[in-house]
Design a protein around this nucleic acid. Structure first.
Length: 327
DNA sequence: GACCCGTGGTG
DNA sequence: TCACCAAGGGT
């Protein structure tokens, strides 16, 4: 987009700001990490959990998590196994380990308080450009450019006239987000929050509800006749992937109170009968998870690769041929 | 940039 | 049904 500032452009942009922020006041969701009494730690935990994970699935886990570990120091003192079990099925369990590591860093290096400084936030494990900006903005009220998938999509449509943003974040998108960010600090905070919410509720990826959009008259994409996306994103593979196997193994380990023989994790449905005879029967829940793992139609070597991946990532430990959650 | 990393709801 | 999608980060 043309970044030159003209009175006409500034006035129109101001109108867009006002319309989106007003819509937010009227239509935004009432989420606990937005409550006036929220703490920076609560915001940070929410941002990590919300990475690639829908709000509805995060809510119950977030509540339990902060009840159990109300301050960074509380989480820092927990074991990785406790942390991974509390993470439950949010997905991408590496995020849980990184949040744990971040809490330990905060406890050791920042006197147990979430740092306000953007660069210090960025230095924490599991916190990248988006999350550092989001915490600085939503927890501390600073002026930073927040660029998440919602904001990218809204700005691609409204300002660039494109149906969808590019596959990966480009420098041009970041520049655009910086260009359209209000100068006033309080307004910039409101804008970041409001645009993200607009993308989540109205300007959605699949079937946007343009008839409810507060800026449909300012939208370059609508003005162009809402042309369809040029390239469809290649879908995330799942069936038959390492990720599927790793996920099934983690489900077993989360359910197991005691270490699980590696043999039980590496066999398939065909091999399970003879294996089962050689071991004491695990609890029913573990058997159920094992059954799901055994049923996956993947070769033995893939099961080994998946387990080695879990061990390498610190999501599991192995002792004398028995596997369990770490620590 | 490309690729890897979970999980489950949904159009 | 099934591919798409979700407040990304690290390598």
């Amino acid at each position: 987009m043309n970044s030159s500032r003209t009175p006409a452009r500034d006035e129109r942009l101001h109108g867009t700001h006002a319309a989106v922020i007003e819509w937010y006041r009227r239509a935004s969701r009432d989420l606990p990490w937005r409550a006036p009494e929220r703490t920076p730690w609560q915001v940070l935990v929410s941002e990590i959990m919300l990475q690639q994970t829908p709000v509805g699935r995060v809510l119950p886990v977030w509540r339990r998590w902060l009840e159990q570990w109300p301050e960074p120091g509380d989480l820092a003192a927990a074991s990785p196994a406790e942390v991974l079990r509390a993470w439950d099925r949010l997905g991408y369990p590496r995020r849980a380990l990184r949040l744990h590591a971040a809490a330990q860093n905060i406890a050791a290096e920042h006197d147990g308080r979430v740092p306000e400084d953007h660069a210090q936030l960025l230095a924490l494990p599991g916190i990248g450009a988006y999350t550092a900006a989001a915490v600085a903005v939503f927890a501390f009220g600073q002026r930073h450019t927040v660029v998440d998938t919602n904001i990218r999509r809204v700005e691609a449509r409204v300002f660039s006239g494109r149906a969808l943003p590019s596959r990966s974040l480009t420098a041009a998108e970041t520049r655009l987000a910086q260009d359209v960010l209000p100068q006033d600090i309080a307004e910039s905070v409101a804008w970041n929050q409001a645009v993200m919410e607009l993308g989540a509720l109205i300007c959605t990826a699949r079937s946007p509800r343009c008839d409810e959009c507060p800026v449909r008259r300012d939208c370059a994409w609508v003005a162009a006749g809402s042309p369809p996306a040029q390239e469809t994103p290649r879908g995330q593979l799942w069936h038959g992937t390492d990720r599927q196997v790793r996920g099934a193994m983690m489900a077993v380990l989360r359910a197991a109170d005691e270490p699980v023989r590696a043999q039980l994790l590496l066999t398939d449905l065909a091999g399970s009968e003879q294996i089962a005879g050689e071991h004491a029967a695990p609890p029913a829940v573990v058997i159920e998870r094992l059954g799901a793992l055994w049923r996956l139609p993947v070769p033995a070597e893939q099961r080994e690769r998946a387990l080695n991946g879990l061990l390498a990532d610190g999501l599991a430990t192995s002792d004398d041929g028995a596997v369990s959650l770490p620590g």
